[in-house]
Simulated scan of single mutants.
Amino acid sequence: MPEHIAPAPSRVGDLITMAARSLRLTSRNAEALLISLTLPVILMLLFVYLFGGAIDTGTAYVTYVVPGVLLLCAGFGASLTAQTVSTDMSSGAIDRFRSMDVSGAAVLTGHVTASLARNVVSTALVLAVAFAIGFRPVAGLREWLLAAGVVVMFVLAISAVSAVIGLLARTQEGASGFTFFMTFLPYPSSAFVPVDTMPGWVQGFAENQPVTPVIETLRALLLGGPAGSNALLAAAWCGGIFVVSVLLARVLFHRRVR
């Protein structure tokens, strides 16, 4: 086997090690972790109890809003990925890893895997609070598993984008600022109000951005009803974003470490 190609067990071991390291880094950033876990819950409570009575969605507002809040979780959780990647690139950690023959792919994949783990916790927290305040889905086991797959697909896509942002940004503050645009995307979508209640020029954007078909697919799975073309659109958006982000991350990483 050529010396520059690590055996498969070694690559898997590097990935596990880097994911565990990223989780440890997250646990040490208690303030950011607390915000990413609790802010989606606070926003859900805010919308349900302050604005829900004034918004007609044809169903209990908490039932309508939960799928969108789940994607807010992904955005807040993924923002930590951008910050930790940026820190690695600017602190000299990558040089140390390369001296130990740890690939850049393992480092970045570790960050994305840690993001997925964080989002599992935040999603479970949001669902627990949602059930406590009246969320009543009609999904069976199959629909729950499919919904979990949709959330994982979205988390992987947005975490890959965050890794790219972390490679572009030179500081943690810059990385955090760039990720604001990702966390903003659920708002001009069908997350909190029906798209047809928005001004016409906003509707065009809301109907043709990646978050809306993901939310509508989750609603169809959890609350019943046809997903229509939304499931295919959600898969196409998430798959396309993930592939493009991986390719960009590879190019950017090699440029940063030359």
Rank of each mutant, 00 (worst) to 15 (best):
Met89Gly: 02
Met198Leu: 15
Ala117Ile: 13
Cys73Tyr: 03
Thr26Lys: 05
Ala249Asp: 08
Val65Asn: 04
Arg219Asn: 05
Ala236Ile: 15
Val161Trp: 04
Thr57Tyr: 09
Val48Pro: 01
Leu185Cys: 03
Arg24Trp: 13
Ala191Asp: 05
Thr212Ser: 15
Val243Ala: 13
Leu39Glu: 07
Phe184Tyr: 15
Gly224Thr: 04
Pro199Lys: 06
Ser10Cys: 10
Thr123Val: 15
Ala220Ser: 09
Ala32Cys: 10
Leu248Met: 11
Phe135Arg: 00
Val161Arg: 04
Gly149Ala: 06
Ser10Gln: 14
Gly166Thr: 01
Leu167Tyr: 03
Ser115Asp: 11
Ile5Val: 15
Ala117Glu: 06
Phe181His: 04
Leu15Trp: 05
Met1Glu: 11
Val214Ile: 11
Leu232Tyr: 14
Pro40Met: 03
Phe180Leu: 14
Trp144Pro: 03
Ala148Tyr: 03
Val41Trp: 01
Cys238Trp: 02
Ile5Glu: 14
Ala124Gly: 12
Leu247Arg: 14
Ser36Ala: 11
Asn29Asp: 15
Ser36Arg: 01
Trp144Tyr: 11
Arg258Lys: 13
Arg21Phe: 11
Leu43Ala: 12
Ser229Pro: 07
Pro40Gly: 04
Leu247Tyr: 12
Val214Lys: 00
Ile42His: 05
Leu185Val: 09
Val41Cys: 04
Ala163Ser: 13
Gly174Thr: 08
Val65His: 04
Gly204Arg: 09
Leu127Gly: 11
Arg98Asp: 13
Ala19Tyr: 04
Ile133Ala: 06
Leu25Phe: 13
Arg28Tyr: 14
Thr197Gly: 00
Ser176Met: 09
Ile16Trp: 15
Ser162Tyr: 04
Ala132Trp: 08
Ser122His: 10
Leu222Pro: 01
Gly240Met: 05
Thr179Glu: 03
Phe192Asn: 00
Val161Glu: 05
Ala163Gln: 02
Ser115Pro: 05
Leu50Tyr: 13
Ala175Arg: 00
Phe154Ala: 12
Leu116Thr: 05
Val126Met: 05
Leu222Ile: 12
Gly110Asn: 07
Tyr61Pro: 02
Val211Gln: 02
Arg255Asp: 09
Met89Asp: 06
Gly68Cys: 06
Leu223Trp: 11
Phe131Met: 07
Gly75Ser: 01
Gly174Asn: 12
Gly75Thr: 01
Ala105Arg: 11
Val12Cys: 07
Ala54His: 11
Pro9Ile: 10
Leu39Gly: 01
Pro40Tyr: 02
Leu185His: 03
Ile94Glu: 11
Gly140Asp: 03
Met44Arg: 02
Ala106Cys: 10
Val257Ile: 13
Gly92Ile: 12
Met18Arg: 01
Phe242Thr: 06
Phe242Gln: 04
Leu43Met: 14
Val214Tyr: 01
Leu156Lys: 07
Leu221Cys: 00
Arg142Ile: 13
Leu15Lys: 02
His4Leu: 15
Thr123Leu: 15
Ala169Ile: 00
Gly68Leu: 08
Pro40Lys: 00
Leu221Arg: 02
Phe205Ala: 07
Val85Tyr: 00
Leu70His: 07
Met198Thr: 04
Ser162His: 10
Gly134Trp: 10
Arg96Asp: 13
Asp14Glu: 14
Ile16Gln: 12
Ala231Ser: 13
Phe242Gly: 00
Tyr187Glu: 08
Tyr49Arg: 05
Ala60Asn: 08
Phe76Arg: 08
Ala106Trp: 03
Arg118Cys: 07
Phe178Thr: 03
Val69Trp: 02
Gly149Asp: 07
Pro226Glu: 15
Phe205Glu: 11
Trp201Tyr: 09
Ala8Pro: 07
Thr26Tyr: 12
Pro186His: 09
Leu34Lys: 14
Val129Gln: 00
Arg250Val: 10
